[in-house]
Computed example of a mutant assay.
Amino acid sequence: MEEPTVADAMTHTMITASADTPFKELVGPMVGHGIGGLPVTDPEGRPIGVVLASDLLTKFEFRCGDDRPPLWSGGSPQRRWRKSCGLVAKDLMSQPQTVKVTTTARVAAHKLATGNHRMLCVVDKGGYLVGVVTGQDLVRLMLRSDSAVRHAVERALIAVAGGTAAAGVGIDVADGVVTLEGSIPLRSTVLSIGHAVHRIRGVVLVRSTLRYEMDDLMVTGL
């Protein structure tokens, strides 16, 4: 069943930093390439941190020395102040947030939305950095033609319901909105179709008026 993963969205060609990369060598790539952060890797290529533009902005927010916030201001201002004194990546970086290359886009989106992260480091089975993914990368997955979405829906219907049952389903796709009409023998299959179509890359919304001939969930007690 088609469901996009971070491998479909991630940036493979990355600019990385080492722990000792100087401040201005971090700024240069961000400005020159229009990116919001750099992964920091160890000599073997495993992510050990991420330097974001917000980490560099502490140089404007604070001036290392007399501008230290009062102790009662809490941990976050203190951490930002310490970063304002940083000279190399290891002084500025935050803890990396990693996902495996097989992680679904849905899980990655949840992590970005709920964890206040700007970038996820994508790692392989050995923990080596193979890419980075941002919210913008995931949103780009929605850029898919209606015809391609329709073909994917047709394949999903056949996989879930079988060719004979799928032939009785009418499909319309407009601006990523999928409309399903018709009749399917079993209620469980109708529900499975809905779940499968929602997972297809490029689907914005599913509108289903599919009917079923027998409520097998009621019969089995599920």
Rank of each mutant, 00 (worst) to 15 (best):
M1V: 15
E2G: 02
E3A: 14
P4N: 01
A7K: 12
D8C: 05
D8S: 06
A9Y: 08
T11Y: 04
M14W: 04
T16V: 14
T16H: 05
S18N: 09
F23E: 00
L26M: 09
G28H: 15
M30F: 02
G32S: 05
G32H: 01
G36A: 08
D42I: 01
R46Q: 08
R46C: 07
P47E: 00
G49V: 04
L52D: 00
L52K: 06
L57C: 07
K59P: 00
F60E: 14
E61N: 01
E61V: 06
E61L: 11
F62H: 05
G65Y: 13
D66P: 12
D66I: 11
P69F: 05
P70W: 08
W72K: 01
S73G: 02
S73A: 14
P77G: 09
W81F: 14
K83V: 01
K83R: 11
S84G: 15
S94C: 07
Q95N: 12
Q97N: 13
V99Q: 02
K100V: 06
R106Y: 04
A108Y: 02
H110Y: 11
L112P: 00
M119P: 04
L120F: 09
C121T: 14
G127D: 03
Y128F: 13
L129V: 11
V133N: 08
V133F: 05
Q136F: 13
Q136Y: 13
Q136D: 14
L141I: 09
L141T: 06
S147F: 11
R150C: 07
R150G: 06
H151I: 10
A152E: 14
A152V: 03
A156M: 01
A156P: 02
L157Y: 10
A159Y: 00
G162D: 04
G162A: 01
A165Y: 00
A165T: 11
G168Y: 04
V173N: 07
A174V: 12
D175H: 13
G176E: 05
V178R: 03
T179D: 07
I184Q: 09
P185S: 00
P185A: 03
L186C: 08
R187A: 10
T189Q: 09
T189K: 07
S192A: 14
A196L: 03
H198E: 14
R199S: 15
I200M: 11
V203R: 00
V204A: 12
V206S: 09
S208V: 02
T209W: 14
T209F: 12
R211L: 13
E213I: 04
E213A: 13
M214L: 11
L217N: 08
L217H: 01
T220Q: 09
T220E: 10
T220F: 10
